[in-house]
Design a protein around this nucleic acid. Structure first.
Length: 352
DNA sequence: AAATCGTGGGA
DNA sequence: TTCCCAAGATT
C-alpha cells in the first residue's frame, strides 16, 4: 500500500489567491481588515446565506458605521434593521456586544479566542473567525463548510456533531504560518463553490488528488448527520385590527424566545391542539370579527405554523390594550416586523 | 446534551 | 410539493 502525500494548505492558498470571492465584508488584497465589519458579518452569516446577508450588511454599515454608532442606537432601531433576517437573538446579542466593546473595551475588539468567547453572541466558530480573519492570528473557524471539507478530505465517517473534534484537529493540522485569515476564508470559499453539499466539483478541486473521500467514492455522502426530527404543525389565531384612521394594533413580543423582542400582531398561543372554535376568547378586544379565507403558512426551524387571520375595525377612540400600541398605517413598515408578521399583514390587506 | 431559534432559495 | 439547508449560539 503506497500512501499519498499528506494534504497541506499551499494548494488551497494558491487556489484562493486566484479564485477568492469578492464580498462586501471581505478586505481586498492589501487592505487591512476592519474587526467591526468582520464581527458584524460573521454574526449575520450564522446559519444564513451570503445572498441573504448582503443587503443587511450594507444597511447596517451605512446606518451604524462603527461599533459606537451601533452601541448608541436604540434597540428598537437595531431590531427593525434586523427584521427579516431571522434568529433574532443574534440582533439582541449583537447590540449587547457592541455596548460592551464600545464602553468596556474603548471600541477595540479582543484579538484572541478566549476573550472573544466571553462576549454575547460569539461562540467557538465566531471567535475563531474573528481571531483569524480580523487579526490574522492562528485560529481555525470550524463552520459547516469546514466540517464538510475536512470530513471529505480525510474521509471522517463518524456522524456530526460528534466528529467535530476530529474536524477541528484536522483543520488545525493544516493551518499555515502567517496566513490564518486567508486559510479560514479559503476553506469557506472552497466549501461554498467546489466542495458543495451536493454534486461537488471534485475535478477542479485543488485537493482532488489527496482527497480520501473522493478516492473512496464517498465524498458526496459526507459529512454524516443524525437523522432529522419531524416538524410538527402548530395552529393559532391572529388578529389584525385596523382603527378607523388606518392605524394598526401592534405589540412587542417578550425579549426572549421565539421572535423575541420583535413586533407582532396580537395572537393566540400557537399549539398543535389549538381549538380554533374558541379563537374569539383570545382576541385582544371585543369587536365584530371577520375571519379571512385561507391561512398564513410559515415554516420555522422546528415547527410549521398555520395562522387563521381575523380582521376587525376599531373606533377612533379605542384604547390600545395593555402592552399594545396603535401604529399609523404609513409607519407600519418601520416596525420590527418579522417575516411571518409581514406575511400576515399582506394577507389581511389583500382581503380588507 | 438535546432543544430551541428564521428565512428564502434551489433541487 | 417537499426536502434540504446556510460562515451557530444558547440553555
Amino acid at each position: 500500500m503506497i500512501s499519498a502525500r499528506q494534504p497541506d494548505s499551499s494548494d488551497l492558498l494558491q487556489w484562493y489567491d486566484r479564485h477568492q470571492r469578492v464580498l462586501p465584508w471581505r478586505a481586498r488584497l492589501g487592505e487591512i481588515p476592519d474587526p467591526y465589519r468582520v464581527w458584524l458579518s460573521e454574526i449575520m452569516l450564522q446559519q444564513t446565506t451570503v445572498v441573504a446577508v448582503k443587503p443587511y450588511f450594507e444597511k447596517f454599515v451605512t446606518r451604524f458605521p462603527d461599533v459606537f454608532a451601533l452601541a448608541d442606537a436604540p434597540s428598537e432601531e437595531v431590531m427593525q434593521a434586523w427584521a427579516g433576517l431571522g434568529y433574532y437573538s443574534r440582533a439582541r446579542n449583537l447590540h449587547a456586544c457592541a455596548k460592551q466593546v464600545a464602553y468596556e473595551f474603548g471600541g477595540v475588539f479582543p484579538d484572541n479566542e478566549a476573550e472573544l468567547l466571553k462576549l454575547p453572541g460569539i461562540g467557538p466558530y465566531t471567535a475563531g473567525a474573528i481571531t483569524s480573519i480580523a487579526f490574522n492570528k492562528p485560529a481555525v473557524a470550524v463552520d459547516g463548510n469546514v466540517e464538510r471539507v475536512m470530513t471529505r478530505l480525510f474521509a471522517l465517517t463518524d456522524p456530526l456533531p460528534g466528529v467535530k473534534g476530529q474536524v477541528r484537529e484536522k483543520a488545525l493540522s493544516l493551518l499555515p504560518e502567517g496566513r490564518s485569515g486567508d486559510f479560514a476564508q479559503a476553506l469557506m470559499d472552497l466549501g461554498a463553490t467546489i466542495c458543495s453539499p451536493k454534486k461537488p466539483a471534485c475535478s477542479i478541486c485543488p485537493w482532488m488528488e489527496l482527497c480520501l473521500g473522493r478516492r473512496q467514492g464517498i465524498a458526496e455522502t459526507l459529512p454524516v448527520k443524525a437523522p432529522k426530527q419531524v416538524r410538527p404543525t402548530r395552529l393559532g389565531a391572529i388578529f389584525v385590527i385596523e382603527r378607523k384612521d388606518g392605524a394598526i394594533l401592534v405589540e412587542t413580543r417578550p425579549p426572549s424566545g421565539l421572535l423575541g423582542g420583535m413586533a407582532a400582531f396580537p395572537s393566540s398561543q400557537w399549539a398543535e391542539d389549538y381549538d380554533l372554535s374558541k379563537a374569539m376568547l383570545d382576541a385582544p378586544m371585543e369587536l365584530r370579527w371577520k375571519r379571512l379565507m385561507g391561512e398564513v403558512k410559515h415554516v420555522f426551524t422546528h415547527f410549521q405554523l398555520l395562522l387563521t387571520v381575523y380582521v376587525g375595525r376599531a373606533a377612533l377612540d379605542a384604547e390600545a390594550p395593555e402592552g399594545m400600541r396603535w401604529v399609523p398605517r404609513k409607519h407600519i413598515d418601520d416596525e420590527a416586523l418579522p417575516s411571518v408578521m409581514r406575511k400576515v399583514l399582506s394577507h389581511a390587506i389583500s382581503q380588507i
